[in-house]
Design a protein around this nucleic acid. Structure first.
Lengths: 128, 128
DNA sequence: TTATTATTTAAGCAAATACTTAAATATATT
DNA sequence: AATATATTTAAGTATTTGCTTAAATAATAA
């Protein structure tokens, strides 16, 4: 059944297109939410730097990263927990240290992004 | 010159690695910030849905999207402005309507992401 | 002109975010 | 056992975010 337009009250509104769009979103809504959530997780200065480092080093601990990024350990730890909870990184205990590493699935999903970062192929036009 | 470690005070800390990491980040810091900023912009439920729609339709106006996503027009408008300010979308006036569309640069950067959304190839492991 | 529709802007607010400091926990060393 | 180091957790706070409503602006139609 076709749902009525609530906001587009102009006579020539393309109600069929609006309806099609609703269906298109519906069909992949869960994927869209998952992807948005993943992009949001990675779309943070500190977290992206951590991930960039972990993509090249597999034996970094919290205090290493704390030194590298010039931030307090709890701040780093909280970012790491957030990423670990979401399954994009993992850690193994080495004595009192914990070495963090990227999960294979995430490393694969973001290998192009990392390449672009190295080549400077980010959006030229984007203004922060 | 080698900078001293502030947080890693353990005897066997790998100061050279820490220093290398600092240099690696330094070398691409601007790219990292740009990319994080772009990912953050797109990493929002509503904005990603808008972009997904604009990737398939080039003649949607604010009130269309307002209907499709069941949100008030100002909310949509504010998201659009944010994306327009950052140069990933643009709009052309058609009478009282404004048709929004993706910039070519953004459409190219995110075509893989859109494909993944359609195929359901998002991170399987990620938990929202 | 007046009325209508679409859009933007502004102001206000609740929720989320990212840091801080201080305290708790875990492991290793003396 | 006592100390030291690394990490996490908890609590507090300032900033940011995304929505809401109401008002302003723009363009068209009657």
């Amino acid at each position: 059944m076709k749902t009525k337009a609530e906001n587009c009250i102009r006579a020539f509104a393309n109600l069929e297109q609006i309806d099609d769009c609703k269906k298109q979103i519906d069909a992949v809504e869960n994927n869209l939410n998952l992807m948005a959530s993943a992009l949001d997780l990675v779309g943070n200065n500190v977290r992206l730097k951590i991930l960039y480092l972990l993509n090249q080093h597999t034996n970094l601990c919290v205090c290493d990263m704390s030194d590298i990024l010039a931030m307090k350990a709890p701040a780093i730890s909280q970012h790491l927990r957030k990423m670990k909870d979401r399954g994009i990184i993992n850690g193994i205990k080495k004595g009192t240290l914990i070495h963090y590493y990227l999960t294979a699935e995430f490393a694969d999903l973001f290998k192009d992004i990392f390449k672009r970062i190295e080549k400077g192929e980010v959006l030229k036009s984007i203004a922060i």
